[in-house]
Design a protein around this nucleic acid. Sequence first.
DNA 1: TTACAATATGACCGGTCAGTCATACCACCC
DNA 2: GGGTGGTATGACTGACCGGTCATATTGTAA
Lengths: 228, 228
Amino acid sequence: MPTKTYHNLPEEKRLKIEEVAIAEFAANPLQSASINAIVKNAGIAKGSFYQYFENIEDLYAHISSIISKKKIEVINSLPLDAANLDTFRYLRRVLQAAVEFQIRHPDLASIERFRRMNSNHLSSVDPETGERVSGDGRFHAFLTQGILHDDIATWVDVDMAAFMLEIIEGGIAPYLVERIGSKTPGVASGALSPEDNRATQDLFDNLMDILEAGLAREPQIRKDFYSK
Amino acid sequence: MPTKTYHNLPEEKRLKIEEVAIAEFAANPLQSASINAIVKNAGIAKGSFYQYFENIEDLYAHISSIISKKKIEVINSLPLDAANLDTFRYLRRVLQAAVEFQIRHPDLASIERFRRMNSNHLSSVDPETGERVSGDGRFHAFLTQGILHDDIATWVDVDMAAFMLEIIEGGIAPYLVERIGSKTPGVASGALSPEDNRATQDLFDNLMDILEAGLAREPQIRKDFYSK
DNA sequence: TTACAATATGACCGGTCAGTCATACCACCC
DNA sequence: GGGTGGTATGACTGACCGGTCATATTGTAA
């Protein structure tokens, strides 16, 4: 973790360092990120860096904690309340959060993408139950609950489906933003125009319909455009 | 491309270099791969490397072409014939190939994984039709055909679904191998035991059922274990 | 003003990197 | 033997890397 000296720094200087570090980690995976580049771009001396952080992993961990905070901010800003959501509304909310995070903080999303690549992010084994848990366990718990509530088909392999959702969550956000954003270049970050927002929402709904039809115990078949 | 000198090399030496290069690229993304490490492990002089290849990208391209050949080998070795397959049998075959490739050539699959991470692998725009085509276009074409054959729901956004299949294809193989392989450690590469093979097949079927239920125009709902 | 601690600095170190090149080696023909 | 063209070699260059440290600067309290 960053030193006391770092926390005592004037906010302006601290923010500058964090801004530069985020840009560096968004452009390079931790493995290839350069301390020299960071100190140069932040306008601080090499020695100062080592007064603030133990090494580059220390800085990376600090940035990671910032990312976590921003993620929670985004989740809490979503209109849907997490409590009292039925199964698929909850899933929608979780994936929606990933898309929103990509739109509002593309750099931070980029860093997260590098992180996912490096960690195997396959699955681990719960030491207590002996059960496999894919990723951080969010989707695993979601699917288990969904089955208990008769919303998700019992034949679905929970860990496999959790893994599937995990990689879709990680991949779909940059895809949607790239696809919608390519029509209106220049608006690279921040917010989307109302029509872009609508287009993103439509695509997102399309994905959710596929996932829901695939996982639901009694899927509500979406009407096709024409009858056979 | 490799020089004439490289192609004149005795096969043993050539294979050694390729083996070492594959190991290096499987352990490090191209960005971090080291020529020094390769020449050291292959037992050749640094200068020799530059008599064989223009630079490390040149070697990487050569290894890529080897990967392509091995991929085709794996696809052709699958029992199902590509011709005369219905829509979802075809999809099954494509994803099956990814799993088989992971099992038989984990190092090459690892290299492919690094490649996918570095390229955005989102989608490009067809210069002729102006249509978006996700990835290499295989899934895009598959879905378009599936809709024409009344197998896939017409409301499915082709490019979005193609992207979804693309990332599932890239992610599911290492997951399955890791999950099944973790039960019987030591058999890291090559082939699976009959029971492991069966377990992999079951999980694979589970995934395919989810995808089919999600995409199909008239999904054949899989029976649940108990009635509500 | 003095003294002392906290902080800032960048030259420097040993290491690795990609790429070069003078030299040596070797096979073949005259 | 002498010449020639293809091949092998590893020392060397200049750049960049993470990390150190003696020194300089600043802030603060006596």
